[in-house]
Amino acid sequence: MLNFLFPQMKHQEKPPGENITELMEFVLLGFTDVPHLQWFLFTLFLIIYIIILMGNGTIVLITKLDPALQAPMYFFLGNFSFVEICYVSVTLPRMLTNLWTQRRTISLVACAAQMCCILVLGATECFLLAVMAYDRYVAVCKPLHYPLLMSHKVCAQLVAGSWVSGVPVQIGQTLQSFSLPFCGSNLINHFFCDIPPILRLACGDTFVNELMVYIVAVLFVTVPCLLILISYGKIISTILKLPSATSQSKAFSTCSSHLMVVTLFFASAIITYLGPKKSHSAGTDKVLSLFYTIVTPMFNPMIYSLRNKEVITALRKLLCK
């Protein structure tokens, strides 16, 4: 199973007589294979970064300030947009700096810190999406109990749990990855420090690390995804039983925005990290990672603003002010 999920991660044994050099820094190759596109890519990613900051920042702002957006659903949406800003800010600024200066080195400590932040924020996103699905499930399937089940205290606890739950595991996974000996090349064929490209540079047996990656992926990606699917299965079943077409349309409209974000997020994550990679080149992996780490956060505020009338109304109020 591990070889199917991570075929590029071989169980490396140190060749006899080879000295292990203690690496103090890595080189993020990024997009060095297209040198003629460096300035175009810099401009493109800078525009995307600004769009992500403005779009998600606006969502955070209006969910905090607008009295009409104080429901639990918008509380979770504001937190999710804040996580998206943090997640993108861990990768894009360094990538922009590398494209601008052409200095692609990153210290071992900075690489470990970047990896840890990416893993923690990725886990937080997975849990928050599951919490948002649970919120929609309670709102549609148990409306009479909604004020009690989704009180402000409960919502705050769910958000705090989403942030904290992945921290110990992901810190442990980062420490485990960087406790491996590294020898030979220090070139990371990626635009940020992630577990798969780091393990490819390690000497010795990486089986335990690969097993941990698989277990954590199941716990933090597959389990929330299954919970979301179960929640929406019950939601759709309940909606279809509503007496009027108007009620059905309103319920579908409320849930469809979240379902679109869920599909975009988990589909890209599963293709990138859990799909078969035998046919993937390094370039394909980087493109998939770009979609997962950059395109999804960019579309998040667009989907919610275009599909939600209350968000559009709040945006108009903000623009008028």
Rank of each mutant, 00 (worst) to 15 (best):
L2A: 15
F4E: 14
L5D: 10
P7W: 00
H11R: 15
M24C: 04
Q38V: 15
L44Q: 04
I47V: 15
L53Y: 00
V60Y: 13
I62Y: 06
T63E: 06
K64V: 14
K64I: 15
K64E: 14
L65P: 05
P67H: 09
L77P: 04
G78E: 01
N79K: 02
F80S: 08
S81F: 05
E84W: 06
I85N: 03
C86R: 06
Y87E: 00
S89E: 11
T91E: 08
M95F: 15
L96I: 04
T101N: 09
I106F: 02
V109K: 07
V109F: 01
V109L: 07
V109R: 07
A113F: 00
L119W: 09
V120N: 07
L121Q: 03
A123R: 04
E125F: 07
M132L: 10
Y134D: 11
Y137M: 13
A139N: 06
P143T: 07
P143S: 08
P143C: 07
L144K: 13
L144N: 09
M150N: 08
H152L: 14
H152V: 12
K153R: 12
Q157T: 00
Q157F: 07
L158N: 01
V159D: 03
G166W: 03
Q176A: 15
I188P: 01
N189V: 15
F191H: 10
F192C: 05
I195V: 14
P196F: 04
I198C: 03
L199G: 07
R200C: 09
D205A: 08
V213T: 14
Y214P: 01
V216L: 10
A217H: 09
F220P: 03
P224N: 00
C225N: 06
L229S: 07
T238V: 04
L242F: 11
S247T: 01
K250Q: 14
S253P: 01
V261Y: 05
F266A: 02
A269K: 01
A269N: 00
T272Q: 14
L274I: 03
H280C: 10
H280K: 02
G283T: 11
D285E: 11
K286R: 15
V287Y: 05
I294E: 06
M298G: 05
M298S: 14
Y304M: 09
N308K: 06
K309H: 06
E310C: 00
T313S: 08
L318M: 11
K321R: 11
